[in-house]
Amino acid sequence: MRYEIRVEGTMSETLTRAFPEMEHVTMSGQTVLFGPVVDEAHLYGLLNRCLSLGLRVVEMRRLPE
């Protein structure tokens, strides 16, 4: 399954390296991280990573296959 996580603000190039498994794109003041998510544990792990880096998650959704 693939997910996209929308984060407020523009993440620096350095910070995006905390998510090496995801691709990212910046649009209208938000950073969209997207890519394959192995399972729920991985998903919660990603959210936790956002939390611990002080990122504000605006939206998260599963992408259609």
């Binding site: 603000g9 523009t10 993440m11 620096s12 350095t14 003041g29 880096l53 002080g54 504000r56």
Partner: peptide, 13 residues
């Protein structure tokens, strides 16, 4: 302008 960047990351750098 915090709006253009994630605050902590930008400010910490």
């Amino acid at each position: 302008e915090a709006g253009h960047s994630t605050i902590a990351d930008f400010l910490l750098a």
